[in-house]
Amino acid sequence: MIEIKHLAKTFSNHEIFSDINLTVNTGEILAIIGPSGSGKSTLLRCLNLLEQPDQGEVTIGDSHFTAPHISKKQAVKIRQESTMVFQQFNLFRQKTAWQNVAENLVTVKKIAKTAAKERALVELDKVGLSEYANFYPGQLSGGQKQRVAIARSLATDSKILLLDEPTSALDSELVGEVLTTLKSVVEEHPDYTVILVSHELEFVKEVATQVIFFEDGQIVESGQPKDVLSHPQETQTQRFLSRFTQQTIAQ
């Protein structure tokens, strides 16, 4: 479970968001949608302390912190509770696909390299990349790199996944393969709790159990996908979805 109370973040006197309150129950898939620059990714990064919030409380799994007084021990525990898939993959260029997946297992979890490699190969197989295990990131397409990043997250055994615009850095023809991979992941792991920031609204409609529309650092509207995406009640949500649909058609 993830519980957020009164969370706030400011950069250089610019308020990114304030007084965010949110609960995501075990097994739920929460999708956060909204315009660029609305604070969605920053909110996600504050949950595992890649960014430190200014105020508020966060509980993730068995770990908890109250900002801004966060100890190093608390930060380590929070980061161990969840795993994050980034927009830009964040792979080590000098390491092969399997080495990228195994790296955290060896350095953080202190698993023997042989066992870590075996686990990495299992996870690469799950995302359809067995034959690319010895390829370096420079030899992979953007979609393949992101699937390596997904395999790396699965290898941590964390049951809380934070997905930050996982397809935004991909060419349109590569988006489908990553979305298919993510869909299979959530279908095969119904006990996972997921927070997904995404602009892929059809995908959100398919996989999410709850949707939040986020704008100007505030939760404007929330509910089930069929309600928020098909029958939005708030003017801001209606405007965003109308503009987003028009952009999609134009493309």
Score class of each variant (00 low, 15 high):
T237L: 06
W98I: 06
H64S: 09
L201I: 11
Y192T: 02
E28S: 10
E123I: 07
R152W: 03
H189W: 09
D157S: 14
K183Y: 10
L170P: 00
F244W: 13
I60R: 07
Q88P: 06
Q87V: 13
S230R: 15
I195L: 07
R119T: 14
L161A: 04
L179T: 00
E81D: 10
D54L: 07
L201P: 03
V76I: 13
K5F: 02
R79Y: 02
K9D: 07
Q94G: 05
K73P: 04
V185M: 03
K226D: 15
S63V: 01
F214Y: 08
V127G: 03
F244L: 12
A67R: 12
Q87G: 06
P232C: 09
S242M: 15
L170K: 08
I212L: 15
P190V: 13
E200I: 06
C46L: 04
C46P: 08
P53H: 04
G128F: 07
D216S: 11
Q99V: 00
E118F: 00
L154Q: 01
L140V: 14
G128V: 12
R152C: 04
F17N: 00
E131G: 14
Q251L: 14
T83C: 15
D54Y: 06
A97Y: 02
E200R: 09
K110Y: 13
R243Y: 14
A115C: 04
T193P: 10
R239S: 13
S141T: 07
K109S: 12
K205G: 05
G34L: 04
L49R: 12
A250W: 11
K95T: 11
E131C: 11
G39R: 05
V194F: 05
S242Q: 12
